[in-house]
Design a protein around this nucleic acid. Structure first.
Lengths: 187, 187
DNA sequence: ACTAACATGTAAAGCGTTACATGATTTA
DNA sequence: TAAATCATGTAACGCTTTACATGTTAGT
């Protein structure tokens, strides 16, 4: 029986399952440039908190690092951690994706809004999506052929397409907003 | 200056901005069948909590209802509430959408997973997306021509397309998973 | 010597959920 | 009259963030 843990804990453990030993600081940076595109990026303080919890569970250990001593604590996943993570991944009841689309909430309340400002909000969302798609594409390009990374590469490409799709939907919405404004101007 | 409030509070207030006076119970039901597709549906207990907060701020009042007395408290948005909500909607700095895709986290960790189970997980996500798209389409169909509801209708159609896109991306991913399995079988 | 970046953490507070409690109303 | 649904709420807990504290190391 696997300890019930929030998905974020498994995600942090997952970052350590790709064969590299990393510090909390490194994990935060890596999360910002990978996890971010399809899941979320936890605050640094939370990463450290999760690492403490994972260590208490015996899922990670801090290894006395050879090279870069500094102040760093380098973490490594344990066999027990890898096994627990594999069980979590293999669970068939998966939580549905969480989507909280603050932009769409505003559009939905558009009857209270200035149409021009609404337009700007949606256009900014489109631009943000284009940017995210490009970043995810860059991540995907840097993928290795190593079988450990093949699935991660698939997810990178999925992320790219997801954000491209968001941009496209935003663009369509802009068109509809304009059409609606035109109809209202006629009246 | 508008009181800083979580987006969920504005969403609840927003539900009351369409001209209907509703109880907490009704708000929960309506959120489940509309807000859900592009934002999120708060727990019933949170809706009641937000209503109390909104009432304390003077953004809603409970109106002595004529017809259906029961135990119900019917809430109505105040002028002050409508004005505060309009200011929030018109803010230009919009929080980016929050996406936590638990399915993709699992695919990303696919090197630890049973490929067949991974396939099932993705297929279930695709089916769920198809279902959500259909429900959002049903919501969109029931939209009125009333200008107050025009934007809401746009968001309904956006939601439909969004979930259709999710289904399509999942389908593509399934194809890539199969291709990957085939390549591995050859080796 | 100074600044920026590295690196780890604590404390407080807010958001949100689940589980539970309570009672009224409708339907069989 | 029993069950289902309506209807509102409380309590406890967990997740997550922000703001802050602290010290180190690298570059200029």
């Amino acid at each position: 029986v696997t300890t019930p843990l929030p998905a974020t804990a498994w995600a942090v453990l997952g970052l350590l399952s790709f064969g590299r030993d990393l510090s909390g600081y490194d994990l935060k940076k890596w999360a910002d440039s990978s996890l971010r595109y399809f899941y979320w990026t936890p605050a640094a303080s939370q990463i450290y908190a999760e690492l403490r919890r994972l260590e208490a569970l015996g899922y990670v250990t801090s290894v006395g690092d050879t090279s870069d001593a500094r102040n760093k604590r380098i973490f490594r996943i344990t066999d027990s951690g890898r096994s627990a993570l594999a069980h979590w991944v293999d669970r068939l009841e998966t939580e549905p994706p969480v989507l909280k689309h603050h932009v769409m909430v505003r559009v939905w309340l558009g009857h209270l809004a200035d149409p021009e400002r609404l337009r700007v909000t949606v256009a900014e969302h489109r631009d943000r999506s284009v940017e995210l798609a490009a970043q995810a594409a860059a991540s995907a390009a840097g993928a290795s052929a190593d079988p450990t990374w093949e699935l991660a590469g698939l997810v990178n490409r999925w992320s790219q397409r997801h954000h491209e799709s968001e941009a496209r939907l935003a663009e369509e919405l802009l068109g509809e907003l304009d059409a609606l404004a035109a109809r209202r101007a006629v009246r």
